[in-house]
């Protein structure tokens, strides 16, 4: 049990993607113009991650080594199609905002990375815990980045005004340069925190 908990919590801080595990940058940068979009993208990715980890860990002894990547891609892509269909059916406005980045979940390196590095070598329960932890960590990071960009770029968070009356939003934060610079600064802050932890 303790091992399962450890697999779950590592995704939340020690190896939190995309800040510690610098993978899956495209959706991270592209959809985080608002905190809400970050949550949506994060949860869609979590769903695919947990389901594909589950199926791959069940099939891990049946899949031949040589064709494993092809098999993983089929499993992951199937769940991505399911997410696409579900979002079209129940969350159409969010589907429109996330747009091309929903099909692109399939090439999110985090998912293939977890399938290859973890689910294909571990049993079902730890694999689910790993997927859930990594997915929620990813969701958290995207929400944080989305909130920062939304506050600076629009003066709101989750659509609610929080900045003072005379605050002039920096429109640039919602554009590509804002995304890159925000992520760069967050990564350097993470580096700083790690180096402080090490020196203690």
């Amino acid at each position: 049990m303790a091992a399962v908990v450890r697999e779950f919590t590592k995704g939340l801080w020690k190896e939190v993607p995309p800040f510690r595990l610098v993978l899956g940058l495209c959706p991270t940068l592209a959809v985080t113009t608002a905190a809400k979009n970050g949550i949506g993208m994060g949860l869609a990715t979590t769903f695919v991650l947990v389901c594909s980890n589950l199926i791959i860990s069940i099939l891990r002894n049946a899949i031949p080594k040589k064709v494993r990547i092809a098999a993983f891609i089929v499993v992951i892509a199937s769940f991505v199609v399911i997410v696409e269909l579900m979002m079209q059916a129940y969350f159409y406005p969010l589907y429109k905002i996330l747009g091309i980045f929903i099909p692109l979940i399939v090439v999110n390196c985090i998912i293939l990375g977890r399938a290859e590095a973890f689910a294909s070598k571990n049993s079902v329960l730890p694999s689910i815990a790993d997927g859930l932890g990594m997915g929620l960590g990813f969701t958290m990071s995207l929400t944080l980045l989305g909130a920062i960009r939304e506050i600076l770029g629009n003066g709101t968070v989750f659509g609610i005004h929080i900045m003072w009356e005379s605050f002039q939003p920096f429109g640039i934060m919602l554009k590509p340069p804002g995304a890159f610079i925000c992520l760069g600064l967050i990564l350097s802050i993470m580096n700083w925190i790690s180096s402080r932890q090490r020196s203690h």
Partner: peptide, 23 residues
């Protein structure tokens, strides 16, 4: 370069400036 900015963080900030130019 300040040590915490080395590698990926500075890379991202450089991309940001490049994106700003392309804007």
């Amino acid at each position: 370069i300040p040590v915490h900015l080395r590698g990926t963080p500075l890379g991202l900030i450089t991309v940001a400036l490049l994106a700003l130019a392309f804007l």
